[in-house]
Structures are given as structure tokens and as C-alpha cells.
Design a protein around this nucleic acid. Structure first.
Lengths: 211, 211
DNA sequence: TATGATAACAGACAAAAGTATGTTTTATTA
DNA sequence: TAATAAAACATACTTTTGTCTGTTATCATA
């Protein structure tokens, strides 16, 4: 390729690699080479080496497609949207995936998934029918958190309250009653950590699982 | 590894590969092999081949780490959140970036950015104070769209209406009036395509662009 | 228990990808 | 303008990874 001023191609390569990593497709050295019309592998390699040395990239030596963004803790992953709330444990419910949405993960291993809201019991909290809520299971639940709970095999989204050793599930809609289920009928699925509303038809279903 | 009932190891391998792909780290055949303590590469390979044949995975032949989830365009990018609505044009407001959030892009080059909601004029549409709206500029605006508009240098979020050759900006809160600004005082910044509410403190600021 | 299907194993080869050494060309700056 | 640093090139070698052929073991079912 044509000679550029110092740093210019470097930055372009960084952007390219970064984009590929965000897309979940780590490039090879030679893919970088051809993407920038270089005639030698080493041209790409030395840029990548430099980016690692500068700390802008991280590399697993020897492994193919081994370049990564540093500080992978705060990266975006795709979380599945579970179409319906399944009766069994969530790991088994993979068949009912409605689609995937990009989510920011702050820790390494966390179970975050999306859930389509059904009904308007949380309307006055700004959670409307059709919204997608992001739920983290294996999460500590505190007073006032909005949670996804299973009562007698049915799933609902409510505000969590503990009142005198008894659990209350409060709707945010005057038309609905406060629930006080027996502990044995109740399972807290997880905590709602985010609400999303898509005002435009965006197909999240473009990567359906056929299995 | 020990012999399992037909389909069992198949599904486990699928889960493993899927998780790796969601994490942005496509595995090699041999990585699958060792993850499942198999003594032959072919053991892993034949399972992967079968998953492709079943349509549960997709593969780029020949390429290393070439297994993908079917139909994955994997086009999530990070969009900037502009802290405050600036007075000038938006391109210049890059210094006021509050952070980045992952966004699903359906097309190639589109100008999508986030904006922190200030005020409760859209409350009954489920857009609350502190929410982040995703705005696409360069977007066609239709009757009833929710838009970000600049009126006399001040930015607001309202529903867009065209009534007898005159533009109306309607709040979704009875305490606010309908606006009918003069065309020369009005600039439509873009269309709100998504609303997000973070119920938990998530630092969005950790992913600065180094280049 | 016989039989076909699935699972796991073994070893080898070919292609892809990482790495290394040295040279030429261009940019930067003193 | 000369010296230095950075960029790009050429080629070769090593390791990793994908793929192939064939065999043995276990499962499912009649």
C-alpha cells in the first residue's frame, strides 16, 4: 500500500481490528494485511505488534486470531431474548430464543437475558407492554428492586418488597393488586437491570436458532 | 471421553460453542476437543459437522475458528451518549460524550447516538427523566414519530405531527402544552428509535476510544 | 442378541495462520 | 540535506488448525 504519515495506518488498523472484535470476528494477521492492500504479512504484523506494545490491543501469543481489546471486563456481548418465560430452569430454555440484543457486561460470568414484557402492570414505572427487560439472575435482591418472579408457574414483573418477614410483589398500576404469595409458591427469577423499548421495527430475530 | 447417549454431547458442544461465539471468541475444533476431554480431533469435528448439518451452526469452510451462529450479522456497535444536548451542530459535540452503549445496526453507515432525557414531558409515553434515548439523524420523519427537535436553540423530545402544513410538537404529559414553532426556529435533529432505562448503576464511560 | 446408528478413537496430511530475518522506501527532524 | 525513525516490502520457516481415511466401542431397537 501507499506510504502514509506515521500513526495514520496504525490508527486505521486499530479501528478495523476493534470493529471486528466487537462484531465477534477476530481477524488474522493476513486478513488485516489484505484489508489494507498490503503486499507483505509483516506490514500488518508490525502494526499489530506496535498496537500491543502501546497497550491498545492485547494478544494471546501463538493462537490464531488472538488479538483482543484490553480490559475485556466491560465489553458488549449478545444476550438472548427468551420469548416466553419457561417453566423449568433457564439453561434449558434455549430453544425459545426470540433473538439477541447487545448488552454491556461488567463482570465475567453473569447470566443476563432479555424478556419480552407482557401486560401493563408496571405501566406507571415506565415499563410498557412489548418492552424488553434485561434480567440478571444470580443477583442479590434488595428492597424496591424490580424483579421477575414466578408465582405458581406464572411469570410476572413486579417491585420487590419484604414486609414483616413476608414478601410482597407490588405492581405499578392502580388496576392491579399487591401480591403476597406463599414462599413455597414463589421463585425469584432475577432482577431487572435495564428496560428497552424499540420504537422502530428492528428485527432481533435475524439470528434465529434452528435447534 | 466417556460414551454418552446420542445427542447429549452434541447439545453440550453446541452450548459451549454458542457461549464462545457470544463472548466474541470463536473456538477451534481442537479447543472443542480439549474442552470435552476427547482424545481425537475427529470426535469434536464430527459433532461440529453434525451441528452444521442440523442448521444449528454455520461454518466458513477452510477458515480457522470459522463456526458461527446462523444468520448472525453480528452488527452491534458502540454508539456515543451525548451528555447534554449541545447548542451547536451535533458533530462538534463529541467532547461531551458521556459514554458508549452497544447498539444494533441494521445498515452500514448511520448516525446513531444516545441522549440523556431531561424532564418528564414524555412521561405517559414511558420515557422518563434520566432515560437514554437512541436517536438516528438522517432519518425520515413520519406522522406520530417521536423526535428530538431544536426550538430556538433548545432541544426537546416530542411527538411529531404535521397539521395543515404546520408542524406540531406534542408532549405526552398533560402538564405541558403543544408546541407549534415557526419553521425557521425549528430543526429536527432526528428520530427516537429506542428508549433505554438503566435500573442499576452501570458505568458507560469505561470504553473510551484510544484512536 | 443381532443389527444399524451414533459416539469415540487413531494417525496422518494439507492448508491456514503466526513468526522471523533482512531490505527498500518514505516521513520527520535536527 | 543528512541522519534517524517509521512504513512498507519480500521471502522463508514453524506452528496451529482444518480435514481426511479408517477403526473400535457403545447405544437403541427390533
Amino acid at each position: 500500500m501507499a506510504y502514509t504519515k506515521p500513526g495514520v495506518t496504525r490508527n486505521r488498523i486499530y479501528q478495523f481490528v476493534r470493529q471486528r472484535l466487537l462484531d465477534g470476528e477476530p481477524p488474522t494477521v493476513r486478513e488485516v494485511q489484505t484489508a489494507f492492500h498490503m503486499r507483505a504479512v509483516q506490514s500488518a504484523k508490525s502494526h499489530l505488534d506496535a498496537l500491543v506494545k502501546e497497550g491498545r490491543l492485547v494478544k494471546v501469543p501463538g493462537k490464531s486470531r488472538g488479538y483482543r481489546l484490553p480490559g475485556t471486563k466491560h465489553s458488549s456481548r449478545l444476550a438472548p431474548i427468551l420469548g416466553r418465560v419457561p417453566a423449568g430452569p433457564f439453561n434449558i430454555a434455549v430453544e425459545e430464543i426470540e433473538g439477541y440484543i447487545p448488552v454491556r457486561f461488567n463482570s465475567e460470568e453473569q447470566t443476563v437475558f432479555g424478556l419480552r414484557v407482557n401486560g401493563d402492570s408496571m405501566m406507571s414505572a415506565g415499563i410498557l407492554h412489548g418492552d424488553v427487560v434485561l434480567v440478571r439472575s444470580e443477583s442479590e435482591i434488595h428492597q424496591g428492586d424490580i424483579v421477575v418472579a414466578m408465582i405458581d408457574g406464572e411469570a410476572t414483573i413486579k417491585e420487590f418488597r419484604r414486609v414483616r418477614n413476608r414478601i410482597q410483589l407490588r405492581p405499578h398500576n392502580d388496576a392491579y393488586p399487591i401480591l403476597s404469595p406463599k414462599p413455597e409458591d414463589l421463585t425469584i427469577i432475577g432482577k431487572v437491570i435495564e428496560v428497552r423499548r424499540y420504537l422502530e421495527a428492528i428485527s432481533l430475530i435475524d439470528e434465529e436458532l434452528n435447534g
